[in-house]
Nucleic acid binder design. Structure first.
Lengths: 273, 273
DNA sequence: ATGCCTTACGTTATACGTAATTATT
DNA sequence: AATAATTACGTATAACGTAAGGCAT
Protein backbone atom coordinates (compact mmCIF):
# COMPACT_ATOMS: atom_id res chain seq x y z
CA UNK A 1 0.00 0.00 0.00
CA UNK A 2 1.02 3.58 -0.69
CA UNK A 3 2.64 5.44 2.20
CA UNK A 4 2.09 9.12 2.84
CA UNK A 5 5.65 9.47 4.04
CA UNK A 6 6.99 8.26 0.72
CA UNK A 7 4.77 10.72 -1.12
CA UNK A 8 6.03 13.51 1.09
CA UNK A 9 9.62 12.54 0.36
CA UNK A 10 8.87 12.42 -3.34
CA UNK A 11 7.45 15.93 -3.45
CA UNK A 12 10.45 17.31 -1.58
CA UNK A 13 12.81 15.65 -4.05
CA UNK A 14 10.80 17.26 -6.83
CA UNK A 15 11.18 20.64 -5.18
CA UNK A 16 14.86 20.33 -4.30
CA UNK A 17 16.03 18.68 -7.47
CA UNK A 18 18.44 16.24 -5.82
CA UNK A 19 18.06 13.56 -3.22
CA UNK A 20 20.86 15.01 -1.13
CA UNK A 21 19.20 18.38 -0.82
CA UNK A 22 15.85 16.77 -0.14
CA UNK A 23 17.37 14.49 2.50
CA UNK A 24 18.86 17.46 4.24
CA UNK A 25 15.58 19.33 4.23
CA UNK A 26 13.82 16.25 5.56
CA UNK A 27 16.46 15.73 8.28
CA UNK A 28 17.14 12.33 6.81
CA UNK A 29 20.22 10.56 5.52
CA UNK A 30 20.56 10.26 1.74
CA UNK A 31 20.65 6.48 1.83
CA UNK A 32 17.40 6.33 3.77
CA UNK A 33 15.73 8.60 1.26
CA UNK A 34 17.12 6.66 -1.66
CA UNK A 35 15.76 3.40 -0.32
CA UNK A 36 12.39 4.92 0.48
CA UNK A 37 12.06 5.96 -3.13
CA UNK A 38 13.05 2.50 -4.25
CA UNK A 39 10.27 1.13 -2.09
CA UNK A 40 7.79 3.61 -3.48
CA UNK A 41 8.74 2.62 -6.98
CA UNK A 42 8.37 -1.02 -6.07
CA UNK A 43 4.94 -0.48 -4.58
CA UNK A 44 3.81 1.32 -7.72
CA UNK A 45 5.55 -1.13 -10.03
CA UNK A 46 6.99 1.83 -11.92
CA UNK A 47 10.33 3.56 -12.00
CA UNK A 48 9.91 7.23 -11.17
CA UNK A 49 13.44 8.42 -11.89
CA UNK A 50 15.89 8.40 -14.71
CA UNK A 51 18.95 7.24 -12.87
CA UNK A 52 22.45 8.28 -13.76
CA UNK A 53 25.31 7.00 -11.69
CA UNK A 54 25.35 10.03 -9.51
CA UNK A 55 22.21 11.89 -10.38
CA UNK A 56 18.51 11.19 -10.44
CA UNK A 57 15.88 13.01 -12.45
CA UNK A 58 12.14 12.56 -12.39
CA UNK A 59 10.88 10.80 -15.49
CA UNK A 60 7.38 11.12 -16.91
CA UNK A 61 5.90 8.66 -14.43
CA UNK A 62 7.69 10.51 -11.66
CA UNK A 63 6.23 13.85 -12.66
CA UNK A 64 2.78 12.32 -12.80
CA UNK A 65 3.31 10.78 -9.37
CA UNK A 66 4.48 14.10 -7.94
CA UNK A 67 1.36 15.86 -9.15
CA UNK A 68 -0.89 13.26 -7.59
CA UNK A 69 1.20 13.04 -4.45
CA UNK A 70 0.68 16.74 -3.89
CA UNK A 71 -3.06 16.28 -4.17
CA UNK A 72 -3.05 13.40 -1.71
CA UNK A 73 -0.85 15.22 0.77
CA UNK A 74 -2.98 18.30 0.53
CA UNK A 75 -6.11 16.39 1.52
CA UNK A 76 -4.27 14.51 4.23
CA UNK A 77 -2.91 17.74 5.59
CA UNK A 78 -6.38 19.23 5.61
CA UNK A 79 -7.52 16.25 7.62
CA UNK A 80 -4.78 16.78 10.16
CA UNK A 81 -5.64 20.47 10.36
CA UNK A 82 -9.30 19.73 10.94
CA UNK A 83 -8.53 17.22 13.63
CA UNK A 84 -6.26 19.75 15.28
CA UNK A 85 -9.02 22.34 15.15
CA UNK A 86 -11.43 19.87 16.66
CA UNK A 87 -9.00 19.00 19.41
CA UNK A 88 -8.59 22.67 20.14
CA UNK A 89 -12.34 23.12 20.35
CA UNK A 90 -12.40 20.73 23.31
CA UNK A 91 -10.45 23.08 25.54
CA UNK A 92 -10.88 26.54 24.07
CA UNK A 93 -13.82 28.56 22.89
CA UNK A 94 -12.85 30.55 19.82
CA UNK A 95 -15.03 33.46 18.79
CA UNK A 96 -14.84 34.80 15.26
CA UNK A 97 -16.48 38.19 15.00
CA UNK A 98 -17.18 40.50 12.09
CA UNK A 99 -16.75 43.52 14.34
CA UNK A 100 -14.92 44.33 17.57
CA UNK A 101 -17.88 45.86 19.39
CA UNK A 102 -19.84 42.73 20.28
CA UNK A 103 -16.72 41.09 21.72
CA UNK A 104 -16.40 43.68 24.49
CA UNK A 105 -19.53 42.31 26.04
CA UNK A 106 -19.42 38.73 24.79
CA UNK A 107 -15.88 37.87 25.81
CA UNK A 108 -16.25 38.48 29.56
CA UNK A 109 -19.69 36.88 29.48
CA UNK A 110 -18.47 33.63 27.89
CA UNK A 111 -15.39 33.68 30.05
CA UNK A 112 -17.52 33.84 33.18
CA UNK A 113 -19.99 31.19 32.08
CA UNK A 114 -17.33 28.65 31.00
CA UNK A 115 -14.53 29.19 33.48
CA UNK A 116 -12.68 25.98 32.57
CA UNK A 117 -12.27 26.95 28.94
CA UNK A 118 -9.62 29.05 27.32
CA UNK A 119 -11.01 31.92 25.29
CA UNK A 120 -9.74 33.14 21.97
CA UNK A 121 -11.12 35.74 19.58
CA UNK A 122 -10.39 37.02 16.14
CA UNK A 123 -11.78 39.56 13.69
CA UNK A 124 -12.76 38.57 10.16
CA UNK A 125 -15.37 39.94 7.82
CA UNK A 126 -16.08 36.92 5.61
CA UNK A 127 -16.37 33.15 5.67
CA UNK A 128 -17.10 32.95 9.36
CA UNK A 129 -19.66 30.26 8.65
CA UNK A 130 -16.97 28.12 7.02
CA UNK A 131 -14.83 28.61 10.09
CA UNK A 132 -17.75 27.51 12.23
CA UNK A 133 -18.25 24.33 10.23
CA UNK A 134 -14.54 23.51 10.35
CA UNK A 135 -14.36 24.02 14.12
CA UNK A 136 -11.96 26.90 13.58
CA UNK A 137 -14.31 28.93 15.75
CA UNK A 138 -17.18 27.82 17.98
CA UNK A 139 -19.06 31.10 18.00
CA UNK A 140 -19.49 33.38 14.99
CA UNK A 141 -20.66 36.95 15.43
CA UNK A 142 -22.35 37.95 12.19
CA UNK A 143 -24.10 41.03 10.89
CA UNK A 144 -26.97 38.96 9.51
CA UNK A 145 -29.07 36.03 10.71
CA UNK A 146 -28.46 32.51 9.41
CA UNK A 147 -30.88 29.63 9.00
CA UNK A 148 -28.95 26.53 8.18
CA UNK A 149 -29.21 22.89 9.19
CA UNK A 150 -26.85 22.02 12.03
CA UNK A 151 -26.42 25.64 13.06
CA UNK A 152 -28.20 27.71 15.66
CA UNK A 153 -28.46 31.48 15.48
CA UNK A 154 -29.90 34.18 17.69
CA UNK A 155 -29.98 37.99 17.60
CA UNK A 156 -27.43 39.68 19.80
CA UNK A 157 -26.70 43.35 20.47
CA UNK A 158 -27.16 46.17 17.99
CA UNK A 159 -24.39 48.70 17.64
CA UNK A 160 -25.15 52.26 16.58
CA UNK A 161 -22.64 54.83 15.56
CA UNK A 162 -22.21 58.30 17.03
CA UNK A 163 -19.64 60.96 16.37
CA UNK A 164 -17.77 62.50 19.27
CA UNK A 165 -17.33 66.24 18.63
CA UNK A 166 -15.55 68.89 20.71
CA UNK A 167 -18.22 70.65 22.77
CA UNK A 168 -17.64 73.94 20.96
CA UNK A 169 -17.79 72.38 17.48
CA UNK A 170 -20.52 73.97 15.29
CA UNK A 171 -22.19 70.57 14.77
CA UNK A 172 -22.01 69.55 18.43
CA UNK A 173 -25.36 71.07 19.23
CA UNK A 174 -27.26 68.95 16.73
CA UNK A 175 -29.35 66.08 18.01
CA UNK A 176 -28.34 63.93 15.04
CA UNK A 177 -26.18 64.04 11.94
CA UNK A 178 -25.99 62.36 8.57
CA UNK A 179 -22.64 61.24 7.21
CA UNK A 180 -23.16 63.68 4.36
CA UNK A 181 -23.10 66.50 6.95
CA UNK A 182 -19.50 65.58 7.78
CA UNK A 183 -18.15 66.51 4.39
CA UNK A 184 -14.51 67.59 4.59
CA UNK A 185 -13.90 67.16 8.29
CA UNK A 186 -10.86 65.37 9.76
CA UNK A 187 -11.34 62.49 12.17
CA UNK A 188 -9.31 60.05 14.21
CA UNK A 189 -10.11 56.40 13.68
CA UNK A 190 -8.76 53.12 15.03
CA UNK A 191 -7.84 50.63 12.35
CA UNK A 192 -9.50 47.33 13.18
CA UNK A 193 -13.10 48.02 12.33
CA UNK A 194 -14.27 44.68 10.94
CA UNK A 195 -17.52 45.00 9.08
CA UNK A 196 -17.67 48.73 9.85
CA UNK A 197 -14.86 49.16 7.35
CA UNK A 198 -17.43 48.67 4.59
CA UNK A 199 -19.36 51.71 5.75
CA UNK A 200 -16.15 53.72 5.79
CA UNK A 201 -15.25 52.65 2.29
CA UNK A 202 -18.66 53.25 0.82
CA UNK A 203 -20.12 56.28 2.55
CA UNK A 204 -17.30 58.20 4.17
CA UNK A 205 -15.06 58.94 1.25
CA UNK A 206 -15.46 62.64 1.83
CA UNK A 207 -14.12 62.41 5.39
CA UNK A 208 -10.41 62.71 6.03
CA UNK A 209 -9.29 59.97 8.41
CA UNK A 210 -6.17 59.78 10.50
CA UNK A 211 -5.89 56.03 10.96
CA UNK A 212 -4.13 54.61 14.02
CA UNK A 213 -3.10 50.95 14.02
CA UNK A 214 -1.88 51.01 17.59
CA UNK A 215 -4.49 51.13 20.32
CA UNK A 216 -2.32 53.03 22.80
CA UNK A 217 -1.34 55.66 20.28
CA UNK A 218 -4.98 56.04 19.33
CA UNK A 219 -6.00 56.59 22.94
CA UNK A 220 -3.21 59.09 23.47
CA UNK A 221 -4.28 61.07 20.42
CA UNK A 222 -7.88 61.05 21.56
CA UNK A 223 -6.92 62.53 24.90
CA UNK A 224 -4.37 64.99 23.60
CA UNK A 225 -6.37 66.39 20.68
CA UNK A 226 -9.75 67.86 20.02
CA UNK A 227 -10.23 65.82 16.86
CA UNK A 228 -13.60 64.21 16.32
CA UNK A 229 -13.84 60.43 16.45
CA UNK A 230 -16.53 57.78 16.41
CA UNK A 231 -18.10 56.02 19.33
CA UNK A 232 -20.96 53.56 19.58
CA UNK A 233 -23.42 52.48 22.25
CA UNK A 234 -20.94 49.64 22.92
CA UNK A 235 -17.74 51.63 23.08
CA UNK A 236 -19.09 54.20 25.49
CA UNK A 237 -19.26 51.59 28.20
CA UNK A 238 -15.65 50.61 27.83
CA UNK A 239 -13.75 53.68 26.78
CA UNK A 240 -13.23 57.06 28.38
CA UNK A 241 -12.67 58.97 25.19
CA UNK A 242 -15.86 60.90 25.60
CA UNK A 243 -14.86 63.24 28.38
CA UNK A 244 -14.27 66.43 26.46
CA UNK A 245 -16.59 65.65 23.59
CA UNK A 246 -20.27 65.48 22.83
CA UNK A 247 -21.78 62.38 21.26
CA UNK A 248 -24.07 63.07 18.32
CA UNK A 249 -25.86 60.06 16.81
CA UNK A 250 -25.39 59.27 13.13
CA UNK A 251 -28.78 59.02 11.53
CA UNK A 252 -27.98 57.04 8.36
CA UNK A 253 -29.64 53.62 8.55
CA UNK A 254 -26.31 51.88 7.88
CA UNK A 255 -24.98 53.39 11.09
CA UNK A 256 -26.81 50.74 13.09
CA UNK A 257 -25.84 47.09 12.81
CA UNK A 258 -27.66 44.24 14.48
CA UNK A 259 -25.34 41.38 15.35
CA UNK A 260 -26.20 37.70 15.54
CA UNK A 261 -24.56 34.87 17.42
CA UNK A 262 -24.19 31.63 15.51
CA UNK A 263 -22.83 28.22 16.54
CA UNK A 264 -23.09 24.54 15.74
CA UNK A 265 -26.13 23.00 17.39
CA UNK A 266 -23.92 20.84 19.57
CA UNK A 267 -22.49 24.12 20.92
CA UNK A 268 -25.86 25.75 21.48
CA UNK A 269 -24.93 26.36 25.10
CA UNK A 270 -22.42 28.94 23.91
CA UNK A 271 -25.03 31.17 22.26
CA UNK A 272 -28.06 30.68 24.46
CA UNK A 273 -28.90 33.78 26.42
CA UNK B 1 2.70 11.08 10.49
CA UNK B 2 -0.66 9.83 9.35
CA UNK B 3 -0.68 6.39 7.71
CA UNK B 4 -3.01 5.49 4.89
CA UNK B 5 -3.28 1.96 6.21
CA UNK B 6 -4.66 3.25 9.50
CA UNK B 7 -7.19 5.39 7.69
CA UNK B 8 -8.25 2.39 5.65
CA UNK B 9 -8.72 0.35 8.80
CA UNK B 10 -10.70 3.16 10.38
CA UNK B 11 -13.17 3.40 7.53
CA UNK B 12 -13.73 -0.35 7.56
CA UNK B 13 -14.45 -0.25 11.28
CA UNK B 14 -16.93 2.53 10.59
CA UNK B 15 -18.63 0.38 7.97
CA UNK B 16 -18.64 -2.85 9.92
CA UNK B 17 -19.54 -1.42 13.30
CA UNK B 18 -17.19 -3.62 15.33
CA UNK B 19 -13.47 -4.20 15.30
CA UNK B 20 -13.94 -7.95 15.07
CA UNK B 21 -15.99 -7.74 11.91
CA UNK B 22 -13.60 -5.19 10.42
CA UNK B 23 -10.59 -7.34 11.30
CA UNK B 24 -12.15 -10.30 9.56
CA UNK B 25 -12.87 -8.26 6.44
CA UNK B 26 -9.33 -6.94 6.48
CA UNK B 27 -7.87 -10.43 6.97
CA UNK B 28 -6.30 -9.20 10.16
CA UNK B 29 -6.38 -10.30 13.77
CA UNK B 30 -8.50 -8.23 16.13
CA UNK B 31 -5.56 -7.38 18.38
CA UNK B 32 -3.56 -6.05 15.44
CA UNK B 33 -6.46 -3.85 14.40
CA UNK B 34 -7.03 -2.65 17.94
CA UNK B 35 -3.41 -1.59 18.29
CA UNK B 36 -3.37 0.09 14.91
CA UNK B 37 -6.28 2.24 16.01
CA UNK B 38 -4.49 3.05 19.24
CA UNK B 39 -1.54 4.23 17.20
CA UNK B 40 -3.77 6.31 14.95
CA UNK B 41 -5.32 7.93 18.00
CA UNK B 42 -1.88 8.59 19.41
CA UNK B 43 -0.69 10.17 16.19
CA UNK B 44 -3.72 12.46 16.14
CA UNK B 45 -3.59 13.11 19.86
CA UNK B 46 -7.31 12.41 20.02
CA UNK B 47 -9.40 9.47 21.08
CA UNK B 48 -11.64 8.37 18.24
CA UNK B 49 -13.73 5.81 20.09
CA UNK B 50 -15.95 5.65 23.10
CA UNK B 51 -14.57 2.53 24.72
CA UNK B 52 -16.66 0.19 26.80
CA UNK B 53 -15.00 -2.85 28.27
CA UNK B 54 -16.08 -5.00 25.37
CA UNK B 55 -17.34 -2.61 22.73
CA UNK B 56 -16.05 0.39 20.84
CA UNK B 57 -18.11 3.10 19.21
CA UNK B 58 -16.94 6.01 17.13
CA UNK B 59 -17.19 9.28 19.02
CA UNK B 60 -17.54 12.71 17.46
CA UNK B 61 -13.85 12.99 16.66
CA UNK B 62 -13.98 9.49 15.20
CA UNK B 63 -16.85 10.34 12.89
CA UNK B 64 -15.02 13.45 11.75
CA UNK B 65 -11.88 11.42 11.15
CA UNK B 66 -13.82 8.81 9.15
CA UNK B 67 -15.25 11.45 6.86
CA UNK B 68 -11.82 12.90 6.18
CA UNK B 69 -10.20 9.50 5.90
CA UNK B 70 -12.60 8.62 3.12
CA UNK B 71 -11.61 11.75 1.25
CA UNK B 72 -7.92 11.03 1.64
CA UNK B 73 -8.28 7.41 0.59
CA UNK B 74 -10.33 8.39 -2.40
CA UNK B 75 -7.62 10.70 -3.70
CA UNK B 76 -4.91 8.17 -2.92
CA UNK B 77 -6.83 5.50 -4.74
CA UNK B 78 -7.22 7.77 -7.72
CA UNK B 79 -3.48 8.25 -7.73
CA UNK B 80 -2.91 4.51 -7.74
CA UNK B 81 -5.41 4.11 -10.55
CA UNK B 82 -3.73 6.80 -12.62
CA UNK B 83 -0.33 5.28 -12.13
CA UNK B 84 -1.72 1.91 -13.15
CA UNK B 85 -3.18 3.45 -16.28
CA UNK B 86 0.13 5.07 -17.07
CA UNK B 87 1.97 1.82 -16.55
CA UNK B 88 -0.46 0.13 -18.90
CA UNK B 89 0.14 2.81 -21.52
CA UNK B 90 3.78 1.76 -21.70
CA UNK B 91 2.96 -1.65 -23.12
CA UNK B 92 -0.48 -1.35 -24.65
CA UNK B 93 -2.12 1.11 -26.97
CA UNK B 94 -5.71 1.61 -25.96
CA UNK B 95 -8.11 3.14 -28.45
CA UNK B 96 -11.35 4.67 -27.25
CA UNK B 97 -13.73 5.21 -30.13
CA UNK B 98 -17.13 6.82 -30.37
CA UNK B 99 -18.12 4.38 -33.15
CA UNK B 100 -17.09 0.91 -34.25
CA UNK B 101 -16.50 1.73 -37.90
CA UNK B 102 -13.18 3.60 -37.69
CA UNK B 103 -11.70 0.77 -35.61
CA UNK B 104 -12.00 -1.75 -38.43
CA UNK B 105 -9.35 0.16 -40.31
CA UNK B 106 -7.45 1.72 -37.44
CA UNK B 107 -6.91 -1.41 -35.37
CA UNK B 108 -4.97 -3.41 -37.96
CA UNK B 109 -3.11 -0.29 -39.00
CA UNK B 110 -1.88 0.52 -35.47
CA UNK B 111 -1.21 -3.12 -34.82
CA UNK B 112 1.05 -3.31 -37.86
CA UNK B 113 2.88 -0.06 -37.15
CA UNK B 114 3.57 -0.85 -33.47
CA UNK B 115 4.12 -4.58 -33.46
CA UNK B 116 5.61 -4.69 -29.96
CA UNK B 117 2.53 -3.15 -28.35
CA UNK B 118 -0.61 -4.82 -27.14
CA UNK B 119 -3.74 -3.32 -28.60
CA UNK B 120 -6.98 -2.72 -26.78
CA UNK B 121 -10.14 -0.95 -27.91
CA UNK B 122 -13.40 0.13 -26.38
CA UNK B 123 -16.51 1.96 -27.45
CA UNK B 124 -17.77 5.00 -25.55
CA UNK B 125 -19.72 8.02 -26.68
CA UNK B 126 -18.67 10.63 -24.12
CA UNK B 127 -15.72 11.81 -22.06
CA UNK B 128 -13.10 10.30 -24.34
CA UNK B 129 -10.98 13.40 -23.88
CA UNK B 130 -10.93 12.81 -20.15
CA UNK B 131 -9.85 9.26 -20.79
CA UNK B 132 -7.07 10.56 -23.00
CA UNK B 133 -5.82 12.94 -20.34
CA UNK B 134 -5.89 10.23 -17.71
CA UNK B 135 -3.97 7.77 -19.92
CA UNK B 136 -6.99 5.47 -19.91
CA UNK B 137 -6.69 5.51 -23.68
CA UNK B 138 -3.89 6.75 -25.91
CA UNK B 139 -5.98 7.34 -29.03
CA UNK B 140 -9.48 8.81 -29.02
CA UNK B 141 -11.67 8.52 -32.12
CA UNK B 142 -14.09 11.44 -31.99
CA UNK B 143 -16.87 12.74 -34.20
CA UNK B 144 -15.58 16.29 -33.91
CA UNK B 145 -12.19 18.00 -34.04
CA UNK B 146 -10.45 19.20 -30.90
CA UNK B 147 -8.05 22.06 -30.39
CA UNK B 148 -6.59 21.85 -26.96
CA UNK B 149 -3.14 22.42 -25.49
CA UNK B 150 -1.21 19.19 -25.08
CA UNK B 151 -3.40 17.32 -27.52
CA UNK B 152 -3.00 16.66 -31.20
CA UNK B 153 -5.91 15.98 -33.52
CA UNK B 154 -6.29 15.12 -37.19
CA UNK B 155 -9.21 14.23 -39.47
CA UNK B 156 -9.63 10.55 -40.12
CA UNK B 157 -12.15 8.64 -42.25
CA UNK B 158 -15.71 9.71 -42.90
CA UNK B 159 -18.41 7.08 -42.58
CA UNK B 160 -21.60 7.34 -44.60
CA UNK B 161 -24.67 5.28 -44.09
CA UNK B 162 -26.43 3.14 -46.70
CA UNK B 163 -29.36 0.82 -46.40
CA UNK B 164 -29.06 -2.72 -47.76
CA UNK B 165 -32.36 -3.70 -49.38
CA UNK B 166 -33.41 -7.00 -51.03
CA UNK B 167 -32.92 -6.58 -54.78
CA UNK B 168 -36.67 -6.87 -55.43
CA UNK B 169 -37.60 -4.33 -52.76
CA UNK B 170 -39.63 -1.41 -54.18
CA UNK B 171 -37.08 1.10 -52.86
CA UNK B 172 -34.04 -0.84 -54.07
CA UNK B 173 -34.00 0.89 -57.40
CA UNK B 174 -33.60 4.37 -55.95
CA UNK B 175 -30.22 6.03 -56.15
CA UNK B 176 -30.69 7.57 -52.69
CA UNK B 177 -33.16 7.61 -49.82
CA UNK B 178 -34.03 9.82 -46.90
CA UNK B 179 -34.70 8.32 -43.51
CA UNK B 180 -38.22 9.67 -43.78
CA UNK B 181 -38.72 7.40 -46.81
CA UNK B 182 -38.23 4.37 -44.56
CA UNK B 183 -41.36 4.99 -42.49
CA UNK B 184 -42.76 1.76 -41.07
CA UNK B 185 -40.23 -0.71 -42.43
CA UNK B 186 -38.58 -3.42 -40.31
CA UNK B 187 -34.77 -3.66 -40.15
CA UNK B 188 -32.08 -5.74 -38.55
CA UNK B 189 -29.52 -3.84 -36.54
CA UNK B 190 -26.48 -4.76 -34.50
CA UNK B 191 -26.48 -3.30 -31.02
CA UNK B 192 -23.15 -1.57 -30.48
CA UNK B 193 -23.48 1.54 -32.60
CA UNK B 194 -21.60 4.11 -30.55
CA UNK B 195 -22.34 7.61 -31.71
CA UNK B 196 -24.66 6.31 -34.42
CA UNK B 197 -27.10 5.44 -31.67
CA UNK B 198 -27.93 9.13 -31.45
CA UNK B 199 -29.11 9.17 -35.06
CA UNK B 200 -31.23 6.10 -34.36
CA UNK B 201 -32.81 7.68 -31.33
CA UNK B 202 -33.50 11.02 -32.95
CA UNK B 203 -34.39 10.37 -36.56
CA UNK B 204 -35.40 6.72 -36.89
CA UNK B 205 -38.24 6.44 -34.45
CA UNK B 206 -40.58 5.39 -37.23
CA UNK B 207 -38.43 2.39 -38.17
CA UNK B 208 -39.01 -0.93 -36.45
CA UNK B 209 -35.66 -2.42 -35.41
CA UNK B 210 -34.83 -5.99 -34.54
CA UNK B 211 -31.80 -5.47 -32.36
CA UNK B 212 -29.15 -8.19 -32.08
CA UNK B 213 -26.60 -8.01 -29.29
CA UNK B 214 -24.64 -11.02 -30.49
CA UNK B 215 -22.50 -10.58 -33.59
CA UNK B 216 -22.80 -14.20 -34.74
CA UNK B 217 -26.57 -14.21 -34.40
CA UNK B 218 -26.72 -10.96 -36.30
CA UNK B 219 -24.67 -12.36 -39.16
CA UNK B 220 -26.77 -15.52 -39.25
CA UNK B 221 -29.94 -13.47 -39.47
CA UNK B 222 -28.51 -11.32 -42.23
CA UNK B 223 -27.70 -14.39 -44.33
CA UNK B 224 -30.88 -16.30 -43.57
CA UNK B 225 -33.34 -13.45 -44.05
CA UNK B 226 -34.20 -10.83 -46.58
CA UNK B 227 -34.57 -8.12 -43.96
CA UNK B 228 -33.05 -4.73 -44.73
CA UNK B 229 -30.07 -3.60 -42.66
CA UNK B 230 -27.55 -0.77 -42.65
CA UNK B 231 -24.10 -0.72 -44.11
CA UNK B 232 -21.52 2.02 -44.48
CA UNK B 233 -18.55 2.68 -46.71
CA UNK B 234 -16.51 1.15 -43.90
CA UNK B 235 -18.55 -1.99 -43.26
CA UNK B 236 -18.70 -2.98 -46.91
CA UNK B 237 -15.01 -3.70 -46.90
CA UNK B 238 -15.24 -6.03 -43.94
CA UNK B 239 -18.59 -7.75 -44.08
CA UNK B 240 -20.21 -10.03 -46.65
CA UNK B 241 -23.75 -9.12 -45.78
CA UNK B 242 -24.29 -7.39 -49.07
CA UNK B 243 -24.53 -10.37 -51.35
CA UNK B 244 -28.27 -10.59 -51.85
CA UNK B 245 -28.97 -6.95 -51.22
CA UNK B 246 -28.60 -3.61 -52.94
CA UNK B 247 -26.93 -0.71 -51.13
CA UNK B 248 -28.84 2.57 -51.35
CA UNK B 249 -27.16 5.64 -49.81
CA UNK B 250 -28.96 7.59 -47.09
CA UNK B 251 -29.09 11.21 -48.12
CA UNK B 252 -29.76 12.93 -44.78
CA UNK B 253 -26.75 15.04 -43.83
CA UNK B 254 -26.52 13.30 -40.44
CA UNK B 255 -25.91 10.03 -42.27
CA UNK B 256 -22.29 11.00 -42.82
CA UNK B 257 -19.90 11.38 -39.90
CA UNK B 258 -16.34 12.59 -40.16
CA UNK B 259 -14.12 11.04 -37.53
CA UNK B 260 -11.04 12.57 -35.93
CA UNK B 261 -8.07 10.95 -34.24
CA UNK B 262 -6.87 12.61 -31.07
CA UNK B 263 -3.93 11.85 -28.77
CA UNK B 264 -1.59 13.47 -26.29
CA UNK B 265 1.20 15.27 -28.08
CA UNK B 266 3.77 12.87 -26.64
CA UNK B 267 1.83 10.14 -28.46
CA UNK B 268 1.60 12.01 -31.74
CA UNK B 269 3.21 9.06 -33.50
CA UNK B 270 0.00 7.11 -32.91
CA UNK B 271 -2.17 9.50 -34.90
CA UNK B 272 0.18 10.71 -37.59
CA UNK B 273 -0.78 9.42 -41.01
C1' DA C 1 -20.83 -20.04 27.28
C1' DT C 2 -20.06 -16.79 23.78
C1' DG C 3 -18.66 -12.45 21.89
C1' DC C 4 -15.71 -8.45 21.86
C1' DC C 5 -11.92 -5.67 23.14
C1' DT C 6 -7.36 -5.20 25.29
C1' DT C 7 -2.73 -6.52 26.97
C1' DA C 8 1.41 -9.45 26.71
C1' DC C 9 4.93 -11.67 24.16
C1' DG C 10 7.75 -13.39 20.48
C1' DT C 11 8.63 -13.01 15.43
C1' DT C 12 9.19 -10.66 11.19
C1' DA C 13 9.53 -6.77 8.27
C1' DT C 14 10.72 -2.11 7.47
C1' DA C 15 13.02 2.43 8.37
C1' DC C 16 16.83 4.47 9.97
C1' DG C 17 21.96 5.88 10.49
C1' DT C 18 26.80 4.93 9.70
C1' DA C 19 30.14 3.34 6.75
C1' DA C 20 31.84 1.80 2.46
C1' DT C 21 31.49 1.88 -2.80
C1' DT C 22 31.09 3.85 -7.31
C1' DA C 23 30.79 7.21 -10.66
C1' DT C 24 30.62 12.13 -12.07
C1' DT C 25 32.32 16.95 -12.03
C1' DA D 1 39.11 16.53 -4.12
C1' DA D 2 34.19 17.04 -3.79
C1' DT D 3 29.55 15.78 -4.89
C1' DA D 4 25.74 12.51 -5.44
C1' DA D 5 23.66 8.14 -5.44
C1' DT D 6 23.65 3.31 -4.16
C1' DT D 7 24.84 -0.89 -1.44
C1' DA D 8 25.98 -3.19 2.97
C1' DC D 9 25.26 -3.85 7.72
C1' DG D 10 23.61 -3.40 12.41
C1' DT D 11 19.87 -1.40 15.30
C1' DA D 12 15.37 0.33 16.61
C1' DT D 13 10.60 0.72 15.72
C1' DA D 14 6.26 -1.01 14.30
C1' DA D 15 3.13 -4.57 12.44
C1' DC D 16 1.68 -9.00 12.85
C1' DG D 17 -0.19 -13.50 15.00
C1' DT D 18 -0.96 -16.32 18.97
C1' DA D 19 -2.18 -16.57 23.61
C1' DA D 20 -4.24 -14.87 27.72
C1' DG D 21 -7.27 -11.73 30.49
C1' DG D 22 -11.53 -8.99 31.49
C1' DC D 23 -16.13 -7.77 30.97
C1' DA D 24 -20.60 -7.81 28.86
C1' DT D 25 -24.71 -10.32 27.02
Amino acid sequence: MLELQHLEYLTVIAEEGTMSAAAERLHLSQPALSRSMQRLEASLGLSLFDRGKNRVELNEAGLLAVAHARAVLSIASEMEQRMEDYKRSLTTITIGSCAPGPLWQLTPDISARFPGMTLSTYLKENDLLDDLKKDICQIAVLDHPVDEAGLICRPYVAESLSILLPKHHPLASKSGLYLSDLDGITMLVYAHLGIWQKLHDEKMQQIHFIVQHDRAAFNDLISASQLPCFSTNLTIQFSNAAENRTAVPILDPEAEIRFYLCAKKKNRKYVEA
